[in-house]
Computed example of a mutant assay.
Amino acid sequence: MSVNDRRAGGRGGGAAGSVVVLGATGFVGRHVCEVFDAAGWRVTGVARSVHGPATPYEMTALDVVDADAERIAELLAERGASTVVNAAGAVWQATEDDMTRANADLVRRLVSATAPLPARPRLVQLGSVHEYGPVPRTGITEDTPTAPVTPYGRSKLAGARALLDAAAEGRAEGVVLRVSNVSGPGTHRASLLGMVAHHLATSAPEPLRLAPLLAHRDFVDVRDVAAAALAAARSNTTGQVFNIGGGQATSVRSLVHRLTELAGAAAEIVEAPSAGGRPPEAEWQRMDIGRARRLLGWSPRRSLDDSLRDLLAHARAAAHREPLSSALQVTPTTMAVSDHR
């Protein structure tokens, strides 16, 4: 059965529908498309550029960050979308204005786009643990006060509130998934784990210099995040926040050491504060995922070891496709990292 032959159905009971995934070529968006496609949904992936390997689902080129609400509504109507998963956004190498436009303004326009549609689609907004900000050493529940301290966290919270307020007023239907730190195959090279995996995969001779790895953070595999989006699409719950994470605080230093063990490489990794940089953080983070278990029937299935192993395999495959000179040029050997997302 081809993707065009799949019938779009209703939600609930695991029935397939028609889903539009924004940010479909991104790290999380690609996996979301794959999970929905495997579950029998009619998938339309939307991204600024759709050039690349062929996919078993349809892809549409549209820069949703710049598109107005009318154009987004037209696309959703054309595709008969019963669900929209917003995996678009900006974090790496982005200005505060970029983050506001991609993480907050886009959600407001998405809400406006769905409001007048005859069959209003369900919105699944992929938020972030950074919406909570620093927290004491207790589990982060959905009732934990939100007090983000970074432009990224503030912009993601503004997007979440846009959907939650609209749902409370009956102008939208959907939920916010606040996702912890994501690992697994395809992790962005600008993130800590992605950077380390790339360094190990390219066998760069220079040491990789990082800020002191003092944090304990909650990590979840990207494929488990995609499964959570599918569970949220199948649910009839609306106007709620769900924490999506691994449910435990893990030493960031231990993860970096484990990556080096799995790589079996002799690459040198040095922890040292950067001159004139921010003091090292000793952040502690653990997501309480009980609500997602109870109401969505979701819980993470992949171990951190599996996630790290697949991350490393993906990084090695990517490095193998790159010219050696290019791979070494992008290896950050002198970067001090204070944000280990």
Rank of each mutant, 00 (worst) to 15 (best):
L157G: 03
G139K: 13
A61D: 00
A69P: 02
Q125D: 09
T114A: 15
Y57D: 06
R109L: 03
P136W: 03
D66I: 00
T141C: 08
A104L: 03
S112C: 08
D98K: 11
A102E: 03
D68L: 12
V64D: 01
L126R: 04
V111T: 10
S155P: 10
A94H: 02
G89S: 12
I72G: 02
V85Q: 09
E142P: 00
A90D: 01
R79M: 07
T83N: 11
L106E: 09
R71T: 13
A88E: 04
G80N: 11
R108E: 15
S49D: 15
Q93A: 14
S82D: 10
D98E: 13
V135C: 13
S155G: 10
E142R: 06
P145V: 13
Y57W: 15
Q125K: 09
A67Q: 01
V85A: 05
G52C: 07
P118C: 06
Q125H: 15
T60N: 12
T138S: 10
E96P: 03
L157W: 02
V124N: 04
R109Q: 03
T55E: 15
E96V: 05
A73N: 11
A119E: 14
P56Y: 14
R79G: 08
A69Q: 14
D143W: 00
M59W: 05
T138P: 00
D98V: 09
G89A: 14
L75A: 08
W41I: 10
P56F: 09
V46K: 06
R154D: 00
T138E: 09
V135F: 00
L117G: 13
Q93Y: 06
Y57C: 05
A88F: 10
E142T: 14
T146H: 13
R71C: 03
D98T: 12
A104E: 02
L123F: 08
T114H: 08
V107R: 06
S155L: 06
G80F: 05
Y57G: 09
A147K: 12
V50S: 09
A69W: 05
W41G: 07
V107K: 06
R122A: 08
R120G: 01
G127R: 07
A73R: 15
L157Q: 07
E142N: 02
Q93S: 10
P148K: 06
G89V: 08
D63M: 13
V124I: 15
E131F: 03
R109A: 02
R122D: 00
G159F: 05
R120H: 01
V64W: 02
P121A: 08
E96M: 03
I72D: 01
R48G: 10
V149R: 05
D66C: 02
F36W: 08
R101Y: 04
P148Q: 05
D37A: 13
R154G: 00
A61K: 13
A38Q: 15
A158M: 12
L76E: 00
L126A: 03
P116W: 06
G45C: 04
R48S: 12
A88M: 04
L123N: 07
D66H: 06
Q125R: 08
H130K: 00
A119N: 09
S128P: 08
T138N: 07
P118Y: 06
W41S: 11
G45I: 07
L157D: 01
A77N: 00
E96S: 12
A87T: 11
N103I: 04
G139L: 13
L106K: 07
E131L: 06
M99D: 01
R48M: 11
E74D: 03
R137S: 14
L117F: 14
A61M: 15
G52D: 14
N86G: 08
L157R: 10
